[in-house]
């Protein structure tokens, strides 16, 4: 077996599986942002000809999946397992994508951390020998998430400056055992952390402790320093959450590494998204589209992608529950 446990929750892949094909699809705002060049396809508008925003989200996921499979020089029939997830109730966009592709499918939910959860399980499946090629897909749509978690899209309420905007994007990756230019060398499974934040707009503050917890565990269990990674990338903490995470890591004695955030990379200084991007598609598109390209091209050698998810529902918020959060980490390395 080429996989072993190190510490309590880190898995090390001695013969690392690799990412053989990736694709990212973005919405119109994402397509105008700093990562425009990293999208394989950009939707002309939020609906893109679909009958509903939910359908547009599903089409986006399917598009990303098909592109990633094609870029890996494979066909859907050659993929033996698919992990997918999104933010919509009962994961309908992912379920419908799996229906179209006909690939054996396991649906996942850990909110915005779903892409990395998928990558973790795909690496496990590929390296354990149960599936040769595994597909990971995750996506989100700003209009479907707004409607499900907050208010109707056209409702004119005032959003606070610390709120985040759900990304309209989808990302897909094909993981295969022992090959591919980007290797998955280790993963750390997150714990659910809750610092009793109950403001559903304060996602960054709710998720930062989970991020700090997972990064700390990963570095400790592997005996690494933050500076051993070229980049430690959080999923979507946004401007507020990133500041909090820095402080939490410093308090835990971790310093020196370079921190970036997918939600900030995706939009840059765009004031219209408030404190940054969020959503399943954010970490998926930035991770699989942008960061994997930098690794392939050699601009980065070793990164820790640590996606964060807020595990709330509109109901739990109204019932005065606090917002629990989770963060899974995956170490990606350029294969020499």
């Amino acid at each position: 077996m080429s996989i072993r446990q190190q510490g309590r929750r880190t898995w090390i892949f001695d013969e690392p599986p690799g990412i053989v094909g990736t694709a990212a699809v973005g919405g119109p705002r994402e397509g105008r942002g700093p990562l425009a060049a990293d999208f394989d396809q950009v939707l002309p508008d939020l609906r893109a000809g679909a009958a509903s925003f939910e359908q547009a989200e599903q089409q986006m996921e399917e598009m990303a999946a098909r592109l990633a499979i094609a870029k890996a020089d494979l066909t859907p029939e050659q993929i033996s397992l698919m992990f997918a997830g999104d933010l919509i109730n009962q994961l309908t966009p992912s379920n419908f994508t799996a229906r179209s592709l006909g690939i054996p499918y396991l649906g996942l939910f850990s909110a915005c951390a779903t892409a990395v959860e998928g990558l973790t399980l795909a690496a496990l499946a590929a390296s354990s020998g149960v599936a040769e090629q595994v597909l990971v897909v995750s996506g989100s749509h700003t209009c479907t998430a707004e409607r499900q978690f907050r208010y109707p899209n056209e409702y004119g309420c005032q959003k606070p400056p610390h709120s985040q905007t759900t990304a309209t994007a989808a990302g897909a990756a094909v993981v295969a055992a022992g090959s591919g230019p980007v290797a998955i060398t280790a993963v750390t499974v997150g714990r659910v952390c809750d610092e009793h934040i109950s403001d559903p707009f304060a996602m960054g503050a709710a998720m930062a402790p989970a991020f700090a917890d997972t990064v700390q565990a990963h570095l400790h269990e592997r005996g690494l320093k933050a500076a051993d990674y070229d980049l430690i990338v959080s999923g979507d903490l946004g401007r507020v959450g990133q500041g909090i995470a820095c402080e939490l890591l410093q308090a835990a004695g971790i310093s020196g590494g370079r921190l970036e955030d997918c939600g900030l990379l995706l939009y840059g200084d765009d004031k219209q998204v408030f404190a940054g991007g969020s959503g399943c598609g954010c970490a998926a598109a930035v991770g699989f589209g942008h960061l994997c390209r930098l690794l392939r091209e050699g601009q980065l050698r070793r990164i820790l992608l640590c996606a964060t998810g807020a595990l709330l529902s509109p109901l739990s918020c109204q019932q005065c529950e606090s917002i629990p959060a989770i963060s899974h980490a995956v170490a990606l390395e350029r294969r020499c």
Partner: peptide
């Protein structure tokens, strides 16, 4: 009626430091 949970004071302080004030 249930009361909303509150973060511990230490975490509340960190959050406040990084949250832009409402104008």
């Amino acid at each position: 009626m249930r009361v909303k949970p509150q973060p511990e004071p230490w975490y509340q302080m960190i959050v406040q430091r990084h949250t832009p004030p409402r104008r």
